[in-house]
Design a protein around this nucleic acid. Sequence first.
DNA 1: CAGATATACGTTATAGTATAACATAACACA
DNA 2: TGTGTTATGTTATACTATAACGTATATCTG
Lengths: 128, 128
Amino acid sequence: MGAALTPNETEVLALLRGANGPMTAYQLLGRMQRNGGAVAPPTVYRALKGLEEAGVVQRIETLRAWAVVTSPVPGVVAICDDCGAVRSVEAQGVFEGLHQRLAAEGFAEARQTIEVHGRCGDCTGGQT
Amino acid sequence: MGAALTPNETEVLALLRGANGPMTAYQLLGRMQRNGGAVAPPTVYRALKGLEEAGVVQRIETLRAWAVVTSPVPGVVAICDDCGAVRSVEAQGVFEGLHQRLAAEGFAEARQTIEVHGRCGDCTGGQT
DNA sequence: CAGATATACGTTATAGTATAACATAACACA
DNA sequence: TGTGTTATGTTATACTATAACGTATATCTG
């Protein structure tokens, strides 16, 4: 099974789970400071690193922020530029197609990042 | 046609074209300072913004660096973690599949980012 | 021409993101 | 007891990006 989380990792994970979207490392830091006194950036970044390696959080590259992983398989991160909502959309076929395409080039992928900006269904109001 | 580039944009683009891979904004800044004396970060970032809007450069999110766009259509950015090579791989089918998948969710995408880390063909030596 | 607007650029300062390096504490266990 | 390992604390700094304001130049227009 996955290794147990450390206290700091547990705290960071709880904060991210309690948020309704990604948080930046310094937002997490601020929360931890209000909770627990003196906390410095490395504490947060170390926790995020551990959680990322455990596969339970991921960095949203285009937002420079961190979010909990909501899907057991890799997802496409869909970011609404209107309302800020961030969703992970399962898209096995897309990842599979990507793998095939890169394998054909001789590229052995280790980590795929797919992020999309646009407007979510709520914000387009059904408009195409 | 596309708007003409400003002198600063032209200089930044030339530097990126002359590089054999992505450069960070501050690497560009260093080069410009050695060329032209006093240059400050906003000069570089403004040029990068203009070039990005013109579609001739792009930010490689996972590297926090900037590269020239080498393909007329959006490409998958394949980054070798061994040798550092960065290639843009055309993958129309992948982008199309991504579009279909998101459209089905009611999401209207404006910008897609696909970056993959791993090992390029040269570094795997043909191994699967 | 005077004045208004727009564009590019310069300049200073600061905000925001991330890591290096070294010190300490607590625990496991030979 | 001593030794190694893991997690954490602490200080400082590096790296990335933007805000805000000032200046110069060109263009348009009354």
